[in-house]
Design a binder for these strands. Sequence first.
DNA 1: ACCTTAGTTGGGGCC
DNA 2: AGGCCCCAACTAAGG
Length: 574
Amino acid sequence: MQHSSIHWFRKGLRLHDNPALLAAATDCHRLHPLFILDPSSGRAGTNAWRFLLDALRDLDRSLREMGSRLFVVQGCPEEVFPRLFHAWGTTRLTFEVDTEPSRDATVAELAERHGVKVIREVSHTLYDTERVLALNNGKAPLTYKGLQSLLASLGPPEKPAPTLTLEHLQGCHTPCQVSHDTEYGVPTLEELGQDPTEVGPHLYPGGETAALARLNSLMDRTAWLCDFKKPETEPTSLSPSTTVLSPYLKFGCLSVRTFWWWLDEVYQGQREHSQPPVSLHGQLLWREFFYTAGAGIPNFDRMVGNPVCLQVNWDNNPQHLRAWREGQTGYPFIDAIMTQLRTEGWIHHLARHAVACFLTRGDLWISWEEGLKVFEELLLDADWSLNAGNWLWLSGSAFFHRYFHIYSPVAFGKKTDRDGAYIRKYLPVLKDFPAKYIYEPWKAPRAVQEQAGCLVGTHYPQPIVEHGAASKRNLGRMKAAQSKRHPTNPSPQGTTPHWIDLHPYLSDNIIIIKGSRVIKKSQFDSPHALTHQQQHHMEVSQQHNCVLGTVSLGWSSQGSLLLTPLPAEYEEMG
DNA sequence: ACCTTAGTTGGGGCC
DNA sequence: AGGCCCCAACTAAGG
């Protein structure tokens, strides 16, 4: 049967590794490559819109070279499709599977009702997310390792599908009018109500062509690709220290499978290469991790109703939120990052960590959902699953639990940029400060500020919070939120651990309270049965003649000990 | 059931 | 300057 196909582009803005597009061209006499623009949806800012329009123009150019065209239609899918099915005599609709919450099911039903056959193909992720979830009893793995072991049982990801060529389009006609450009052309920023004067430097032009060029430019950097370890790349680098392929992966201008197998080829024939999670393959698995989490966890981009998310009473502070967003916090490292984000649409992963921690659990105690919205607007690579997943992570709401590891807005940048070149680039107002004060200009004596031509409080803001005090306070609030999550844990949450004299209560029967459990000394009578740590625990307990308790199960691995008051319910057992 | 281990990517003080 | 130790003390997964 010869079909009249619509291929619906959403992500996957490419001709390579696009199985749904290939399916549309198979047994097809008429093909309409379609993109539906819904200018009212989403929070994309001007830079992100420019990237998308670049990508659409590139796609149209590539299709045109094969005698086809891209049809850009404005509206919402539920309204657009019935009209197009009718006008174009459509018998088949193909599109790429999208794991984000969407109205794909509604569109599919609508197509069935119009007698249109629907074909969906997985090509935005390395693995079929549904299959990974099914393998794990429908639940998303909550650790990277967990995902890795699931994927190990599935084998390597599928190879990319062949790139669409003229041969695929043999006998497959795209009906174009002379009026195509006015009717179905790619609009301009102005036509979308965006202010074109708001765009920043065009560092990362959108589109498949730019994506493949960027990938190819990495080709002769075999050693760099094989040595790549994400935590060792620098957030303060003046030109990106990582690949900046993320915007292209987000829109699907670059196929993740193409990238994966391209890397695999680079790795082949090398003596050794870095490994997940820090390697480049590892980065793609992180992407997979958050895609799986986003698909398997309800309300993934919200706190309320999200079962893995710590429930926190975040502050509502519009002034602080605005200062953070506008790069006016008074912390040059934070403000420089937010400036780079606003102007260029991309910042290093660790820079995201620094500003995300600062906004949430570190300093401002503002909900990660607010940060998520700002990133969604300003990042070229803002990807629903990755954005929400990383905000959950950095705010200490899920996945990451060592909340006492707080990024210092002063010290963190210094590690890789002692002189503050990064700050000088993005905050020129501070460029003449001596290195000694560039991260903390408010500490500079008046004469130094005058010398630098920048008075703190006049030309650059005073810090909006005092990091030392704010982070300490927030650490306590985080701890409180954690204990609320586990109300059954009888260890004395919220109290300051300290040595206490329990001598009057002691008998031979020393009780060790470890975590939430009560263990009698008699259980440990044979020293050989004890682990090294338990023995140590016992020794200290006897040596100090006291009841020994710990508030955590993790103490042993670090070799430190905490003695805490006995919870009231155990006191009589003393 | 119980325990151990590990967790992509910290900070600060000390030597 | 750079390495080492300590800080503080949670969760998930696996044995």
